[in-house]
Structures are given as structure tokens and as C-alpha cells.
Amino acid sequence: MPGMSQHPVLFGTLATSFAISQPLSFVLDVNIQEQNKVLSESKTLTYGTHNEAVSVLQKKLKNINMFKGEEDGKFGVMTEHYVKKFQAKYQLNVNGRANKETIYKLIQKEREHYLEPLKNLEEETIDVGMYSEDVKKIQSALHYFGYYQGKIDGIYGPLTKEAAKAFQEDHKIPVKTKLDKQFVQQLEQTKTPDQDAIVHTVQKTPDTKTVKVSVSGDVIQIAKSYLGAPYRWGGESPSGFDCSGYLQFVFSQVGVQLPRTVSDIWNATTPVQKPSVGDLVFYETYKPGPSHAGIYLGNGSFIHAGNNGVEISNMSGSYWQQRYLGAKRVSQ
């Protein structure tokens, strides 16, 4: 991944001026570098121009929330209007012409726009599995600077965590995360009756012995750390999971060995009337009987390896509600 340890030289003197004016140095995403090159090497863009540079101009104005038109590459009345607004905002000559001064200022302001959420990382508290618009901004910024190539989905999963860590290491900016003991401590402080740490036993197959295992915050924490991992039929590792492979992998991290198929997991676990955090919830999907399962998170949601990869779904959604078979407890 670019930007982890070595930073290629950016194009021309424009990059040099940025390096002097900013305390942090970056390598931009390859596409962003190309866009900047197209724009900085273009002639003055004026009303009536129709080319790739105008498309880049429109895109960059939109990125900093200063363009609401279509990115069509046509320098028309609307594009001229927003160029003038940009020039006025940053005390440039307001003529509606995207000359070198305007272009360089636009590239600079776009860069600062994406830098802001990364500067604020040290002030944020980010949980693995967290979804928010702030995480989307962080992902977009990490992508802009060449650290993140995943989906901009607002979920702080493994790819986002890795990219943020690389950014931290390169620029010595700490990111606070509520993990490990902090996660369990918070759970203990805020738990509701269905969030109590669970210690249960269940008889597995005849050739396995019965032992006690705690199923609570550790399992949930581990399960959420793989949010965004891709789906793969037969997959049983972070490079690709199917639903039972995901369950088997997660529980193996706390010393619990689950069977490999959903139907065998169903047969090897204990029925419960109402699921608690860490229990399994089962569904009948592509064939009769239990064919899909996930881990209950509380508040009517569960985490599972679905068609879109490891994700969190709502049990009350129409698809899942009508296919729900019941909940079972994992212990061994």
C-alpha cells in the first residue's frame, strides 16, 4: 500500500510548496496525482472549454462542497458561477477563469479539506465496528492520501484500521481505540440484563469433552474486528469467509472449536428462548433447515458473513425476520 513507509516525489514545484507550508508530508493516491497533474498542466480554463481538466476542476470543487452541478467536463454558466464563489472565498481575483493561481489554490484547499479529519484522529475515540459519517470522512481522507483502497462505507473495519495505523506510524499521530480490556470494562459499566457475561455448557459431539467457556465481550470484539472482510464460498480466513467459516474462525480465537457447517453448529449448541449477546442466531435461507447464522450483538442486531462480506444486520428487517429459526448458545 502506498504511503506506508516511503513517499514518492510528487509532481513539480506545486508539491514542493505544499511540503514547505504543511507540517506533514504525504504521498497522494495515484488517481489524485494524475488529476492534479492534468489540472496544473492545463491552460487557463474559461467559459466554453470542454475537456478532462474541466471535469477535474468540477470534481475538486465538489469535494470541498463548492460545486453542485454535474461533473460533465463542460465549463458552462454553473461552473463559472462556482469558480467565482471559490475565488471570492479565498480572496482571489474574481473573474470566473480557472487560471494557475485559482488551480493551485483549489488543489491546496482540497488537500487541507482531506487533511483535517486525519489531524483530528488524535482527538477521536474509534471503536472497531463503529459506523458513522466521521469514519466515512476518515476513509475518504486516507484514500486521498494513498493509505486506503477499500469502500467508503463508514464502517471502521480491518482495512480502515490498518490504513489508520499506517498513517499513525508515518506521522506519529496516536489514535485512541477502546479495545482489549477497555472494551470489556466499558461493557461491564453499561451492561443491560441481556449483556451479562455468559458462562454456559453444552454437550458437543460424542468424541468431544464438555468444558466451560466464557462467551461475551471477547467474542464480540473479535467478531467486529473483521467487519468488511470479503465473502467467499468455503472461506474460513480473513481473506474470505462464508458464514460458518466466519463463526468457526471467531470462536476459535477464544478456544472454542465449532463444527464447520451451519447445520452441525445448530445441532451442537443449546437452544435459548431469547438470545443474549454472544449467542448465535440461525436462519433458513437457500435450503430447508438452518443454512445461515450469525452472532447476536444485542438491540436486535447480529454480525455475520453475508453476500457483502462481514456485516451487521438488523433481525427485524423483512428478509431476516421471515427466515429466523431461533437462537442457540455456544459453549463447549
Rank of each mutant, 00 (worst) to 15 (best):
A229P: 14
I155D: 01
L24C: 01
S239L: 13
Q189C: 11
V30Y: 14
Y147V: 01
D264V: 03
G76I: 05
L325C: 09
K274V: 03
V277I: 06
T261A: 05
A98N: 02
F26V: 01
L14V: 09
L227D: 04
N51E: 12
Q248L: 02
S239N: 14
L159V: 08
L142E: 03
D207Y: 12
S244N: 01
K37L: 15
L14I: 08
P238M: 10
S301L: 07
A98D: 05
I103R: 05
Y286W: 14
Y231Q: 03
N95S: 08
Y82N: 13
I198Q: 10
K176S: 10
H200V: 15
A223D: 08
I295N: 06
S5H: 13
T44E: 15
Y147S: 01
Q108L: 15
G217T: 01
P288F: 06
F249P: 00
E188N: 15
S55Y: 06
P193D: 14
V211T: 15
L280F: 12
Y319V: 12
H50T: 13
K85H: 06
L92F: 12
G309M: 08
H304D: 13
S21H: 05
N31F: 08
A327F: 12
V9S: 12
I107C: 14
K105S: 15
I107F: 10
Y231W: 09
S225N: 12
D218W: 08
R323T: 04
V38W: 08
P193S: 15
P230Q: 13
Y283E: 02
Q257T: 14
V54H: 06
V254H: 00
T192F: 15
G76K: 06
K224M: 11
N314E: 03
P238F: 06
L24E: 04
T125F: 07
V281N: 01
S40V: 11
R111G: 14
G228A: 06
E122L: 00
Q91E: 13
G146K: 00
Q139W: 00
E284Y: 07
A88V: 09
N267Y: 11
R329L: 14
M66W: 02
Y148A: 02
I312H: 06
K85S: 10
Y231D: 05
K105F: 13
L187W: 10
I173P: 01
Y319F: 15
V281F: 00
